[in-house]
């Protein structure tokens, strides 16, 4: 096989692998539209990405202090974890589609605390009442009291048995700060949504919303520790709207630079 043949084979393999990794979504149906939110983590201007040698590694290598090195772990803007996307409007969600793949999520407590820094839950319908809820799993050998408050003053409190689970529900949508009575160093943010569709995942994935009735929607993206990104999008039946959400501090007002 000569060089040109090798090059062609390489190009073909690259194209095949590219196609295989690109997510495919069903085309929109005639009676509804879609929203595709592409997530784009961007490091602050002037700072290199996490792939260059970091101070964290330097600390670990010179054994000054591995623990001290952890404090210098850098944000990986190419793969931000636990990004939350919420699409909402006053419109009813079509009944033949699940509101979300994960209407109820599970938040786990183990020896390291909560297993994630933020969770999102979609609407739940219980006895004709719309709620939003999460399951809390306790992997510790003692019971826990988990509580939370939203900025609007709504709250919840739930006891979770040792090595057991409990359900926490709220009637009011909101962003709840979640804490544990037995370990105050634990904290988590719960986005409780009672009207809309939700998505959660890393920033190298895309948030796809299908079967949306034509109308105007608010798209909110909550990356951890970064400013909220928002857009108002008009959805037309039979069409897909694609938007790119920049997850960055670059758009904050620059003061004193």
């Amino acid at each position: 096989m000569n060089r040109i043949q090798l090059l062609l084979v390489g190009l073909a393999l690259t194209a095949i692998s590219g196609c295989a990794s690109a997510p495919s979504y069903p085309p929109p149906k005639a009676d509804s539209g879609q929203i595709l939110v592409q997530l784009n983590g961007k490091a602050k201007e002037g700072v290199g990405g996490p792939k260059r040698e970091t101070v964290e590694q330097e600390y670990s290598r010179t054994r000054e202090s591995v623990e001290q090195g952890k404090a210098f772990e850098r944000v990986d803007y190419e793969e931000l974890e636990e990004v939350i996307v919420v699409v909402s409007s006053g419109l009813p969600i079509l009944e033949d589609t699940p509101i979300t793949d994960k209407a109820t999520v599970t938040l786990t407590v183990n020896g390291d605390g909560f297993d994630r820094s933020q969770v999102v839950s979609g609407p739940l319908s219980v006895f004709r009442k719309v709620l939003s809820g999460i399951r809390i799993r306790n992997e510790l050998d003692h019971p826990l009291l988990i509580y939370g408050f939203s900025k609007d003053g709504d709250s919840f409190e739930v006891e979770v048995p040792a090595n057991g689970e409990a359900q926490a529900n709220v009637i009011q949508a909101g962003i709840y700060e979640v804490y544990c009575e037995q370990d105050e160093s634990m904290s988590c943010v719960w986005h409780a949504v009672t009207r809309g569709k939700v998505w959660s995942g890393p920033s190298d994935e895309q948030a796809f919303f299908d079967r949306l009735p034509a109308g105007t929607y608010e798209v909110l993206v909550y990356p951890p520790r970064l400013p909220v990104w928002s857009r108002t999008i008009t959805v037309t039946a039979g069409k897909r709207e694609t938007v790119t959400a920049d997850l960055t501090v670059n758009d904050l007002p620059k003061v004193g630079e």
């Binding site: 602050k44 520790r225 970064l226 501090v249 670059n250 904050l252 007002p253 620059k254 003061v255 004193g256």
Partner: peptide
Amino acid sequence: NVYFLGDIEADLG
């Protein structure tokens, strides 16, 4: 870098 989120949002560079 220092930046603020919450009731006051700004980036000090």
